[in-house]
Simulated assay, not measured.
Amino acid sequence: MLEEIVKYLNLSVAFLPGLIGIYAYRHFSKSIKLFFYYIILSLLTESGLWLLANYHLNNIWLINIFTIAEAVLITAFLIKTSDSRRLRYLLLGLLLTYMMTWIYSNFHLSNLFEFNSGDKFIKGTLMILGCGLTLLNYSSSYQKSLLKDSTFWILTGLLFYFGLTLVIFSTATWVFDDSTMGMQLTWVVHNIIAIITNIFFSIGFICSIPKKSLSY
Rank of each mutant, 00 (worst) to 15 (best):
I206N: 10
L135S: 01
K148H: 06
S150A: 15
T67C: 07
G124T: 11
L90F: 14
W187E: 03
I32K: 02
T165I: 09
G21K: 09
G18C: 02
Y138L: 09
I203C: 03
T156K: 13
L214P: 05
S179F: 15
I203A: 08
Q184H: 13
V72T: 12
I196T: 01
T151N: 12
L57N: 01
S145E: 15
M99F: 14
F201H: 08
M1H: 02
W102P: 02
L146D: 05
S117D: 06
I5V: 08
L41W: 05
F113Y: 10
F176R: 10
S202D: 04
L2F: 13
T180A: 13
G48V: 06
T173K: 12
T165R: 07
H190K: 14
L90Q: 06
K33M: 06
L90Y: 12
N116W: 04
I199S: 09
L129V: 15
S213A: 14
N64W: 11
I195Y: 09
T81M: 02
N54S: 08
L133G: 12
F113G: 05
I209M: 09
S47Q: 00
S105Y: 06
I39R: 02
V6H: 04
D178M: 07
R85Q: 13
M127E: 10
A24M: 14
K123S: 13
S202M: 05
L16H: 10
S105L: 08
N64F: 05
I209P: 03
W61D: 15
F169V: 04
S110Y: 11
N198I: 00
F152I: 05
L78T: 09
G130P: 07
S140C: 05
I168E: 11
P210R: 06
F176G: 00
Y89F: 12
G18K: 08
Y55F: 15
S208L: 04
S215G: 00
K33E: 14
T186M: 11
W187Y: 13
L19Y: 11
Y104H: 05
M1A: 10
Y142D: 01
K211E: 13
L19P: 12
I195H: 13
L90R: 12
R88L: 08
G132H: 04
L164G: 05
A69D: 12
I22M: 04
F152D: 03
Y55H: 15
L133A: 03
T156Q: 01
A76I: 11
T75Q: 04
Y25H: 06
K144V: 06
E114N: 12
S139M: 11
S117V: 04
Y216T: 00
K33R: 14
G21Q: 02
L52T: 11
M127P: 02
K212T: 14
I196G: 05
G93E: 05
K7Q: 06
H27A: 14
Y89E: 10
K211L: 08
F66E: 06
M181T: 15
G18P: 02
S31G: 00
R86I: 14
I193R: 09
C207K: 06
F205V: 11
L44M: 04
I192N: 04
S213F: 08
Y142T: 07
K120C: 00
L16Y: 06
F169D: 12
I65T: 10
I32Y: 06
K30N: 13
G21M: 01
T151S: 12
S141R: 15
R88D: 10
H190L: 07
E3C: 01
L92G: 15
F169Q: 08
C207Q: 13
